[in-house]
Write a protein that binds this DNA or RNA. Sequence first.
DNA 1: TAACTGATGGGCT
DNA 2: GCCCATCAGTTAG
Length: 218
Amino acid sequence: MSHSSFANTDFFTGRPTTEIAQALLGTTLLYRTPTMTVGGLIVETEAYLGTNDTAAHAYNGRRSAFSEPLYRGPGTLYIYRLRANYLLDIVTQPAETPEGVLIRAIEPSIQPEQLVANRGKSGVLVSNGPGKLMQALGIQDQAMNLQPITDSELAIDLSHRKVPREILALPRVGVNPTAASGQLPLRFVVAGNPYLSDIKKRDWQPDHGWQAANDALN
DNA sequence: TAACTGATGGGCT
DNA sequence: GCCCATCAGTTAG
């Protein structure tokens, strides 16, 4: 039987946010409620680099009840609303250093039929965007905002992880490209994965961009 | 299949 | 007011 190991505070400590954003690719985002566990492989992330990043909520030291989670310690969940959607961030630096990673897309892997049912869509539309994946998981409130990921129904499973064959670094989505940080390559994707938020169908890879299982054994 | 556009809630100056 | 860390429906090719 395979066992599970979940990302703890150490995973989000002691290395640059850009590195953590890439390390999350191929891990499994889990939502474990008392009645069931659902989840998917993380295939797209974005790094937000705090007070000097013009696209970050904490740019220039901005701090409010809204952005407060970013200033808490590593592994803090930052769940916020953008229009009608809930988005998921994980804080990646020590308290008072407001950096984080936005989870932008997952490939359904745990109870995929439940994700489809929650979302009311099928195929890549289930989870190929940051608001869509939260709908698919069934998270439609901010109850877990500010929780430490070590004590939450959300978790990152690091065991039996898949390894991207190629990681691309691209400009972030929805960020004003004319701003100072607007074109930085802080968006990381598993090249060729169909669940990426803006991939063209012609660019889908048959193996979804993962290394063969044998190569993935660490 | 891809590009475009309108709806939309809320934080911030 | 203004600006989005978005999404879905519609149109053109």
